[in-house]
Nucleic acid binder design. Structure first.
Lengths: 243, 243
DNA sequence: CGTTGTGTTGATATTAATCAACAAGTGTGG
DNA sequence: CCACACTTGTTGATTAATATCAACACAACG
């Protein structure tokens, strides 16, 4: 299975094909190595060109995916072009589960990425044969749902300042999926435009707000795409509206 | 099983205990009558006092629920009291599925309601024994997720006018769960305050916007809690930002 | 018959969007 | 190597949408 020995993220790290059985998900303990091996057997590793929508809203939901390298933006569009990013799918994330026969959103890579593709009928058969897999996907769907609820609170009731602070704090916890501590220094793989479309703001407001958090010494921005959290406690208070 | 013969909605209708095996979900065909009967065996029918939060954010997630009568509001709070309603759970809706060991949101009835309660360990055992049940819950979680994504688009990118129009259109399709056509005349079980907290607006803006849609003859409001859609095509265009 | 809760409407304030200019990088070709 | 265009991000001035503050209408209820 060549995709189990490929390279992801920093050169030299062994690729972690989360869906097909690698460490990221075996660590979570919800799925046996045996089942993961079976899943790997039907996985089709695929390289996604940047800006190619490998999931398109409204098209037949023929497959299910796992992100094996890179980050995808998941988004919905209005007819006039307004865009809402509903989430970012980082390495390890499952994608494209649907009840309806068409996708409810689109997904494309931010920069180069790799995914494992599972055809729906084969996945269905596999789930029927190995219920632990379905259990794992139910857990994934539930945690997506929890994230979506948190995002609805952000979009519906938080100020621009609270949204940006929440975003920075959440991003710093991103590697937590691998049971690591939240990082105080990390990279943002997405552009200001993506951040704006995720937070329901404009790029200008995102930029201004980050600048203000920097001038207040809550964060530092050594480069536009790199964040250092300088005062996590205060930043978290801002994110919760308690500041 | 006394809750299978009780009354819900309009007096005279036989109660449809969606979780415990009644028609609403058997119609959907995803779960066998046999499995539904097994589910019914562990269901604890419960009457919920109005405004009693039967699910409280942050508390141990000990149970899972199905709404058997009435409508619940699902919500999250910020420390200063700002509230976001993340969804309404009408009769038939499943509630409280969680990966974490605490609930991520709160739920309470809008007016009187009844629910069926399932303790988590018993549900877990039942799901292990009857995978069709897990499949059904995965479907439920996926459709909640689709609704959440649609709501994120609404909250992040739609204007007040588009939000209110979207809400009215979505509510008119609510009985669709039972495979009925969208209604042009229906009741709103929730207050203006609930609508505002769901749409990320204030009560005043909701009221003003409904008034304007009425003055434009897109809808009629015979009573504050009853809506008649007078021009569905136009209303849908407004909801999509195409008007 | 007043009181209370809910919804509506009006006047004003505030936040974030829009419009606009500019700065810093990146890549291309001369 | 440098001039140029092009992209991305930042900052400033103004506008527009919705929140806030306030008054009032109406029904339900004691």
């Amino acid at each position: 299975m060549q995709h189990h020995s490929a390279v992801v993220g920093r050169p030299g790290d062994p690729e972690t094909c989360a869906a097909c059985g690698a460490r990221a998900h075996s660590v979570c303990g919800a799925i046996s190595n045996q089942d993961l091996a079976r899943l790997a057997a039907i996985a089709v590793p695929t390289v996604v060109e940047p800006h190619h929508a490998f999931i398109a809203e409204g098209e037949p939901a023929e497959a299910f995916f796992n992100v094996t390298a890179g980050t995808a933006r998941l988004f919905k569009l209005l007819p006039d072009g307004r865009q809402q990013i509903t989430g970012f799918a980082d390495t390890g994330h499952f994608l494209g589960l649907a009840v309806s026969d068409t996708y409810a959103f689109s997904a494309e890579g931010i920069g180069p990425m790799r995914i494992c593709r599972f055809s729906r009928p084969r996945l269905r058969r596999l789930m029927d044969d190995f219920p632990a897999l379905e259990q794992r996907l139910l857990q994934a769907a539930c945690s997506d749902l929890v994230a979506a609820q948190e995002q609805m609170l952000l979009l519906g009731r938080k100020t621009a300042r609270e949204r940006v602070a929440s975003f920075v704090v959440a991003r710093s916890r991103q590697p937590m999926a691998c049971r690591r501590a939240p990082l105080d220094r990390f990279d943002l793989p997405m552009s200001r435009s993506d951040i704006a479309d995720y937070l329901g703001l404009t790029i200008e407001t995102v930029s201004r707000t980050l600048s203000r958090l920097r001038s207040e010494r809550l964060i530092a921005l050594p480069r536009p795409d790199q964040v250092i959290i300088q005062n996590r406690a205060s930043l978290e208070r801002v994110a919760e509206g308690t500041a």
